[in-house]
Design a protein around this nucleic acid. Structure first.
Lengths: 147, 147
DNA sequence: CTCACTGCAAAACGTTTGCACTAGG
DNA sequence: CCTAGTGCAAACGTTTTGCAGTGAG
């Protein structure tokens, strides 16, 4: 499955005239296989072993390229650094306010909201973003144990 | 109306044991009366006239305090700097992808989404955040004129 | 009077940029 | 080949911090 995705993504890159460098391949591969939503620095650290002298700039450059081609989404939340996510299927995020974990969850796309927003504001709507915040099960458990 | 809000907010601060300094008062006042969603720097610049030697740090400190008390929300978008918004009534934001304007719009709160998210993920949900992206009417107009 | 808050400067942080070098196609 | 991409370091803009001095309650 992940293999297919990778081949598919590489095909997209080639079609866009983007070169497949080992570093770029590794960044893409890491993002496709990571269930977490890593920061640029996470990716940098994760690939440090394979590419001892890769620079952070390269990670950022590649993330920008992958974003431009539409393979990757950049998520900006309250905390200082951006997180990156493979733009696979439509899904929303739920974020733990204690441990900052980000998990995916599925919900039928809120088309009516987009429609109503367009009507009320006169905007030409392109997309929307929704996040739910709360405390994850593990953190709830930890809280209980403390008391 | 805005006066009431200000008195109310000050009462909240006092109850929380927070001192009402002139700078703090000004930041709060500015946020309450601004329809835009200013960055810390916007606020700093706006109050420069009244407080020639107020430092940026003070703006940030005050925004943090106001956030902690729950009077102010911090919004982070793609662009580098955070924006601040008075946590008055529940509302959503619609953002122009051309000129980066942020406008408020009202929509019945998506309680079902929160409920479903809680069920699916087991989170103890506290709130959610929704933004709609598109092109505002002015920018649509400008685009038409260009063609 | 006292302690929370201010102002200033310096530092931290994530991200971007300029440039010479390298390697993918 | 030739140009896109790399690595490095320095630069950038936003936010935070440490500390001495100040003023709100």
């Amino acid at each position: 499955m992940a293999e297919n995705k990778l081949q598919e993504s590489i095909a997209t890159l080639k079609k866009a005239g983007v070169r497949i460098t080992p570093q770029r391949h590794a960044v893409l591969d890491y993002l496709l296989n990571s269930m977490t939503h890593p920061t640029a620095d996470d990716i940098y650290k994760a690939l440090e072993g394979k590419f001892p002298n890769m620079s952070v700039a390269t990670v950022y450059n590649n993330l920008r390229v992958l974003k431009e081609v539409g393979l990757v989404r950049e998520l900006t939340y309250g905390d200082s650094s951006s997180r990156f996510d493979c733009n696979t299927s439509e899904h929303y995020h739920i974020i733990c306010e204690k441990c900052n974990k980000i998990e995916d969850f599925h919900y039928p796309s809120l088309d009516e909201v987009e429609k109503l927003a367009a009507q009320v504001t006169g905007y030409d709507v392109s997309h929307h973003r929704l996040e739910v915040y709360g405390i994850c099960q593990e953190c709830q458990q930890l809280d209980k144990e403390k008391q």
